[in-house]
Amino acid sequence: MNDDRKEELLTRWMDDALSAEELRELEPVLAENPDLNEERVDYRKLRDELKAAIPAEVEPPYPDFFNAHLERLVREASGDEQVREGAIRGFSRIWLWWMAPAATAVVVGAFLLGMQSAQPPDSPGLADASSSEIYSPFATVETKIIRDAELDATLIVVEGLDDLDDQDLVIGGGSIEGEHGFFVNTGEIY
């Protein structure tokens, strides 16, 4: 019996998958190597341990998001054959980066909520028109932040400060002094 045949028969013997005829064919090999029987018992134990240790199924992290993101990729790929690996590969980093700001936002949010509760009830102090937030440590100062997506601009309104020169707030251009405070174009450096 050549080695290839031995390997095949022994592999299937380990799995109890030999026919009676094949078993007879293998018997001389087993007779020459009596330890093979013990080896088979050992491997079966190992196989059980392997099955117990390595799950056949593991849900990916954020399984709902997995499907949602996949749908976006599929729709992109369906519409544009060029959209493929780049988007997928790039996403891994986006995914990781996305988690960091999300965690930060939770911490900042908790902090702001805590600070807001310390302010007088009639002092808003927090943003009302955007996902961004601005906090004033002074109860006499009111702040607002308004995001205009069309203009790609963010309006920050600070009321209750002494008069300031534009240059106090703005390093780059794009600021206009408004009626109630400072208009800052976040598309520019400031």
């Binding site: 990916p60 992290p61 990729l73 493929r84 997928i88 996403f91 891994s92």
Partner: peptide, 10 residues
């Protein structure tokens, strides 16, 4: 693994 699984399904 997450990325590759997405790639598989695409």
């Amino acid at each position: 693994s997450w990325d590759l699984a997405q790639e598989v399904f695409v």
